[in-house]
Design a protein around this nucleic acid. Structure first.
Lengths: 138, 138
DNA sequence: CTTTGTGCAAATTCTTTGCACCAAA
DNA sequence: TTTGGTGCAAAGAATTTGCACAAAG
């Protein structure tokens, strides 16, 4: 599904800026911050403002077309891939990897059947291959 | 294990302030923010500064005696319970519940055996009993 | 003494808000 | 026109930093 279809499907009016942000999110699985999206798009949209990136990503998140990631203590990160998967973050270099996980249907918490679960987020933290080597040289 | 033992075991010098913060974290499973800890302790330690709470909680987190929770978009939250469990956050009222989960030993990600996993964080988001009722009255 | 923790104030960073202007229906 | 999006500048909030003083060994 391309950017235009996705926005239309969610009743989001497809402005130039919104299409550009959506397109960027769909083609970059880097879990970018607001700044990263802004810096990537600003050259091609000279009048672009960071406020618009905030507006747009917040709107997208409310509509469920991107996901907010709380994995990074400093900045908000967003993921354009809303299919079921989890994330690994390297404590050393900060790189974030996608980890594929099984689709699981409706989640019911055994001990808390009264809690209605809409989203499940799983974050792994540790060290990536490069940083493991760097920190424990042969 | 009490606050003093815990700090000593991690080679953290047990100042008055640090003991008070650790004690608070051990006796309040409310996943408090820096502000909440500060407001709770300030009356009994009149000279207390918020900087000290930041210093202390950051130190504790580095030493692994408290856990940082990225579940709340606005503020950093901390958990004095470092045993294996996950969290549920109500999208409506913001309440955070502990969800007990099975102890699982060393985690190895099937498709990424090269990633060394130190921590696994699972967050559920949805609606708690009270808010479910409120939003869908009989 | 010497090291280390504390706490004030200032600085930084991230994010939101108010408002005027622009664009599209 | 009227509605809604954009973007600037300012405000707001959370967190960090620099530095002087205090405390403990």
């Amino acid at each position: 599904m391309d950017a235009l279809e996705l926005l239309t499907k969610h009743d989001i009016k497809p402005s130039l800026q919104r299409l550009a942000v959506m397109e960027y999110m769909l083609t970059h699985s880097t879990h970018p911050t607001v700044d990263e999206v802004y810096n990537a798009l600003a050259p091609s949209i000279p009048t672009l403002s960071k406020t618009t990136i905030y507006n747009t990503l917040n709107l997208f998140e409310e509509c469920g077309v991107v996901t907010y990631l709380g994995i990074d203590k400093k900045n908000a990160r967003f993921d354009g891939n809303t299919t079921q998967h989890s994330h690994f973050r390297c404590n050393e270099c900060g790189a974030i990897y996608d980890i594929m996980t099984q689709e699981s249907g409706t989640v019911v918490l055994d001990e808390h059947p009264e809690l209605v679960v809409n989203e499940t987020h799983t974050y792994y933290k540790g060290y990536c291959k490069t940083c493991t080597k760097k920190l424990q040289p042969a």
